[in-house]
Amino acid sequence: MNSDLFFLMAKHNDNVGGTISYGPCGEDIRKCTNDEFGHVGTLESLYVLPGYQGQGVGSSLIQALMTRLKEMEVTHFCLDSGFKIAQTKWLRKFGAPYTIAKDYWGKDGDHMVWLCKVQDLL
């Protein structure tokens, strides 16, 4: 088990409404940044169940993660996405990506990588 990886859950009563995780830099980020972010942890796997979407659960999970990262004295994190729907949401939430790997997943399959400051999201 990797102790650098952890998950947070959003619960309502006894139901899990969403999860978010944080862990070591992934291979796609390493490739897209020439390993510049190999030392930076990654916001990973933000999932909100359909019945809980549009209610601020994802934003609350991100906020809880930022609070935890600040407690851990982490100043920066990265995230990445190759999914167009997720990219649209991340562009709105985090602004312009640090880099875009054009056609990484094939024609028109760009991969985006963000480098974010924890403090900016608290």
Rank of each mutant, 00 (worst) to 15 (best):
Met1Ala: 14
Ser3Leu: 10
Ser3Ala: 14
Asp4Thr: 14
Phe7Cys: 14
Leu8Tyr: 00
Met9Trp: 03
Ala10Phe: 09
Lys11Ser: 11
Asn13Trp: 02
Asp14His: 05
Gly17Phe: 00
Gly18Leu: 03
Ile20Met: 03
Ile20Asp: 04
Tyr22Gln: 02
Pro24Lys: 07
Cys25Met: 09
Asp28Pro: 03
Asp28Ser: 14
Arg30His: 02
Arg30Ile: 11
Arg30Glu: 11
Lys31Leu: 10
Glu36Ala: 13
Gly38Leu: 00
Gly38His: 02
Gly38Ala: 05
His39Asn: 12
Gly41Gln: 02
Leu43Lys: 00
Val48Ser: 02
Val48Leu: 01
Gly51Leu: 09
Gln53Pro: 06
Gln53Tyr: 08
Gly56Phe: 13
Val57Met: 05
Gly58His: 02
Ser59Asp: 11
Ser59Met: 11
Gln63Asp: 07
Gln63Val: 10
Ala64Gln: 06
Lys70Ile: 04
Met72Leu: 15
Glu73Cys: 04
Thr75Asp: 06
Leu79Ile: 12
Ser81Cys: 10
Lys84Trp: 04
Ile85Thr: 09
Pro97Cys: 01
Tyr98Gly: 10
Thr99Arg: 02
Ile100Glu: 13
Asp103Lys: 01
Asp103Ile: 00
Tyr104Ser: 05
Trp105Lys: 08
Lys107Ser: 13
Lys107Pro: 05
Asp108Cys: 09
Met112Lys: 13
Leu115Ile: 06
Gln119Ser: 15
Asp120Cys: 14
Leu121His: 04
